[in-house]
């Protein structure tokens, strides 16, 4: 077990190194000088040269990379090229907002997917199952931003039940915070829920065909009882895999949805800094998103060990 955890930690570290190099190289390959880009075409040569010196942009790429990574490890993300303000606190600020969005959307997706996917699997030959299946298929096809716009049109513009956009921190006005959270979470979570529902359905269908479910029923368990006691845990293995991939999708989706709902999250921060041409800021945010995805996958790998006893000893 400990060995397995160490192995997975080593994998995490290795992928972090590789991905950070990729992010860095990709940004370095962008045409144009970051200092020139940040200051604009009208800036004087002297001020550009000064910025380059100030941020170490005149040093060789390798030492630039090392100082960037060194800073990252100390959670010192450097200063913005444009505003010269430290980047880390701003990111932390925005991250809290995005986390609310992503976590709530994920929970919503699970709350939708587990019961509906199970019902669809149990009724896969009956009309009710087919109807649910068709609905989820539509859900899969709708992109999050379109869902967002539709939800705003219906619930904010037409019915005026909920605010169309905006963000209030939960400690300022919890009621308003929740009201403003509903639509963005729905537009992110419904779509992911529809996708996840299909995976839950096929996982349950697969498990239903397993011999051990037949053994459980031969013991005298009812078919639902057999599914609950013996099926869910086994069905969770493929579903957790998809869940990890979906968290990555959700982070990307949040970038768009935050734009639609004017939410000051990490996504809108990223787009703002792209517009500002603040390359180091963009680089930091991208690296942070990569880190988040890798961490989620790491946690999922550890979850496998908890769910599936075969993995604890399967490989040494």
């Amino acid at each position: 077990m400990l060995l397995q955890v160490l192995r997975r930690t080593a994998t995490l570290v290795a992928s972090l190194v590789v991905s950070s190099v990729l992010v860095f190289v990709f940004m370095a390959l962008l045409p144009g000088d970051p200092a020139r880009v940040a200051l604009g075409v009208n800036a004087s040569e002297a001020s550009v040269a000064q910025l380059r010196r100030e941020f170490g942009l005149d040093e060789p790429l390798v030492s630039q990379y090392l100082s960037w990574m060194g800073g990252f490890l100390r959670f010192d993300l450097g200063n913005s090229y444009v505003s010269r303000v430290p980047i880390a606190p701003q990111i932390v600020d925005r991250l809290q907002v995005t986390l609310w969005l992503v976590v709530c959307a994920m929970v919503l997706a699970l709350v939708i997917a587990v019961p509906f996917g199970t019902v669809m699997a149990l009724r896969h030959r009956k009309p009710s199952g087919l109807v649910l299946s068709a609905i989820s298929q539509v859900g899969v096809a709708v992109p999050a931003f379109l869902a967002g716009i539709l939800l705003v049109t219906i619930f904010a513009v037409k019915l005026q039940w909920l605010p169309a956009n905006g963000w209030t921190p939960p400690n300022e006005d919890p009621a308003q915070f929740l009201r403003q959270l509903v639509l963005p979470v729905l537009s992110l979570g419904l779509v992911q829920g529809a996708v996840l529902t299909r995976y839950v359905r096929s996982a349950i269908l697969d498990v239903q065909r397993e011999d051990y479910i037949r053994t459980a029923r031969a013991k005298g368990l009812g078919s639902l009882q057999a599914l609950r006691r013996h099926g869910f845990r086994n069905a969770a293995i493929p579903v957790v895999t998809v869940l990890a991939l979906q968290l990555a999708t959700l982070l990307i989706g949040a970038v768009v949805v935050e734009r639609v709902f004017v939410i000051p999250g990490l996504g809108s921060l990223l787009l703002d800094q792209v517009a500002n041409r603040d390359l180091i800021f963009v680089q930091d945010i991208v690296m942070l998103l990569v880190l988040a995805v890798l961490l989620v996958n790491f946690v999922v790998d550890l979850l496998y060990l908890v769910i599936d006893p075969r993995l604890k000893v399967a490989t040494r």
Partner: peptide, 13 residues
């Protein structure tokens, strides 16, 4: 008693 002992038992229990 079923034919396939390899798959007749729940692997996670």
């Amino acid at each position: 008693v079923f034919q396939e002992p390899m798959t007749a038992l729940n692997p996670t229990m």
